[in-house]
Design a protein around this nucleic acid. Structure first.
Length: 587
RNA sequence: GGGCGUGUGGCCUAGUGGACAGGGCGAGAGGUUCCUAACCUCUCGAUCCCGGGUUCGAAUCCCGGCACGCCCGCCA
């Protein structure tokens, strides 16, 4: 209802300004501070004071006088508070919100009729996913959820770098070294098993005698050339390594959970001729130069100092070349494309955008979302070096700590609902993994994070369990009500007017904003605003919970409050779902 | 050296032109015969990195610094 109310307020202010013969280019619509009862406000009087030749409060009063609330469904009253115009919600605003939120899909926006490919994670299949990269699947998955909920037709893509030098090194190492000379794997899963070859191979290339390194390099070169030439046998050899490692990584990511609709391999764009075709078109560009036997693009005139090499002197393509072909494919198949990238890829992101533009594409549908790396207090994480914390270890630790927490709380638990061992395990998973996700998704991606165990796994504070608890409490009330024979009434059988306490009103007003939060998050690609919202929501719900008993209220109030709790449950449940955090029915 | 980004109480964080900068951690004091105390209430704590500027109004925009992060490969 908030979105509808905002449209009404915009129309009201614009109409009033028109009537007063004032400019309508900036309506100054904003959300008032929490202690103001209005749902929306306008500060337009400040700007018009000079033009009108009157003090802002007078201007505000004049504008307010031009607006008749009776013309609008959701505007109950227009008041002024000094220079501000305040728009108070009508009873119909609350009634319509309560009714709309009975839908368990409440917050989902109308289908936009547009497809979007969300590419995220896309980590090279070289070994276990570590925490340094963990922001990518968590932000990416939440962003995909947000866009889905906002009405887009979303496909989740993992772009697989299966054609680069790294994979050639990996394939050579896998075929060369004997398992007997490798250390025990850290975990019994494919990528932990395989990464040992990769690390061994890199160590060899760094440390072995020159002649042996040369021989190895020759083999690595032949693998790369084979891929470039479309040689089926080479492709099979590399694929075995890639698919094995990727299979393990998928298992890790699924724990978050982050799952994908498609794994798009870059070799696909070599094998189908798209890369060759692209290279020809790049060579025809005015910016193309042939220097030191390599084809490059001079992008100085477009604000990028560094040349983009797109064809090596040995005739092979580079990651960047294939990624351009990949983006053209996205443009052909989707209305929009979102890519979640680490900030270390920022320059490449600019190059991709600029080059696509030079090739004649409209790059407006491409959105590149950048996030800063997660570092350890002692420095960077690296798969090749084997430094860093594996995401699996973080999740295991999170679950272990959550389990301890659940068991500690079991003893002085007020509610006697007899949680069994399965419940404890379920809650430990929901809370532990939820806490990790929430901690990461709730922060602005641009800010750098230094990983610290205690901070990442704090179950109090502004954390997942704080919000999950609200969901569990709402479910608790609904469950108790059902046992007492009180189902949530049908829409025709409750009356929002019975929600007359400030806490109930505030909760309902908070529920009303949810669709607008989804819209903002989707428009700005900012999933973290959903997390911010869940915290505000939790505060509103807890105040209601404290002040407004549901089961003991008189029938009319009870029915309205039951409907409100159901609405709250749908809202917070869907907000958590969008964030990718489990919504426990009990905890 | 150049480019990009970030800088908010002791620590973490929301807020990117408008109503006294909102939370959390921490410290201290309270609250459970009542739908889950992973909760709530109150108190303490801020030169919004620094200096200029624009504006009726700046944490927010502009200019100049400083600090930190990232990037500047015929790697990905």
């Amino acid at each position: 209802m908030f979105l509808a109310a905002r449209r009404e307020v915009e129309a009201a202010v614009e109409g009033a300004l028109d009537a007063l013969d004032l400019p309508t280019d900036d309506l100054g619509i904003e959300e008032p501070p929490e202690d103001v009862d209005a749902v929306l406000a306008s500060s337009v009087a400040f700007r018009l004071a000079g033009e009108v030749g009157a003090a802002p409060p007078e201007v505000a009063a004049d504008i307010a006088a031009e607006i008749d609330p009776a013309d609008y469904d959701y505007v109950g009253d227009v008041t002024t508070q000094g220079p501000y115009l305040n728009f108070l919600p009508s009873d119909a605003y609350f009634a319509a919100t309560l009714e709309a939120a009975q839908d368990d899909e409440y917050g989902r926006l109308d289908p936009k009729g547009a497809s979007v490919a969300v590419e995220h994670t896309s980590a090279n299949p070289t070994g276990p996913v570590h925490v340094g990269r963990a922001r990518n699947p968590i932000i990416g998955d939440a962003l995909a959820n947000v866009l889905d909920f906002a009405g887009y037709d979303v496909d989740r893509h993992y772009y697989v770098n299966d054609a680069g030098r790294q994979m050639a090194v990996f394939t050579w190492a896998y075929e060369t070294f004997d398992e007997a000379e490798l250390p025990e794997p850290e975990r019994d899963r494919a990528e932990y098993d395989m990464v040992r070859y990769y690390r061994r191979g890199n160590t060899f290339l760094d440390e072995a005698p020159e002649s042996e390194v040369e021989a190895a390099e020759a083999e690595i070169q032949s693998i790369m050339q084979g891929l470039e030439a479309g040689d089926e046998a080479t492709y099979e050899r590399v694929s075995e390594v890639v698919d094995t490692v990727l299979g393990g990584m998928q298992e890790c990511l699924a724990r978050l959970p982050a799952e994908f609709d498609e794994f798009v391999k870059e070799t696909r764009f070599m094998r189908n001729g798209a890369t060759d075709d692209l290279v020809e078109r790049l060579q025809d560009l005015d910016e193309a130069v042939y220097e030191e036997d390599a084809w490059q693009l001079e992008l100085d005139d477009h604000g990028i100092d560094k040349n983009l090499v797109f064809l090596r002197s040995d005739g092979t393509s580079l990651y960047a070349t294939r990624d351009l072909a990949h983006h053209e494919w996205k443009f052909e198949n989707y209305d929009r494309a979102v890519t979640v990238l680490g900030e270390d890829h920022k320059l490449q992101a600019q190059q991709v955008r600029t080059t696509l533009d030079l090739l004649g594409h409209d790059t407006d549908p491409l959105d590149q979302v950048l996030y800063s790396y997660v570092n350890l207090p002692e420095g960077k994480m690296s798969t090749r070096e084997g430094t860093g914390i594996d995401l699996d270890d973080l999740l295991d630790e999170a679950i272990d700590r959550a389990r301890e927490e659940v068991e500690d709380r079991l003893e002085d638990r007020l509610r006697n609902d007899d949680l069994d061992e399965d419940d404890v395990e379920r809650i430990a998973h929901q809370v532990g993994i939820g806490a990790v996700r929430y901690d990461i998704v709730s922060k602005q991606p641009a800010k750098a994070i230094t990983f610290e165990w205690d901070r990442a796994l704090d179950f109090e504070a502004q954390s997942a369990p704080y919000v999950q608890y609200v969901h569990a409490r709402a479910c608790g009330i609904l469950g108790e009500a059902r046992e007492a024979g009180h189902e949530v009434p049908e829409v025709a059988d409750f009356d929002a007017d019975a929600l007359d306490t400030p806490e109930a009103r505030r909760l309902l007003a908070t529920i009303a904003r949810f669709p607008a939060v989804i819209e903002d998050a989707a428009d700005d690609h900012h999933p973290h605003v959903v997390a911010t919202y869940t915290r505000e929501f939790a505060e509103a719900f807890n105040a209601f919970y404290r002040e407004c008993p549901v089961l003991d209220a008189d029938t009319e109030t009870r029915d309205a409050r039951l409907a409100l709790v159901a609405a709250a449950r749908h809202t917070v449940g869907n907000a958590l779902r969008v964030l990718g955090v489990a919504a426990p029915e009990s905890m």
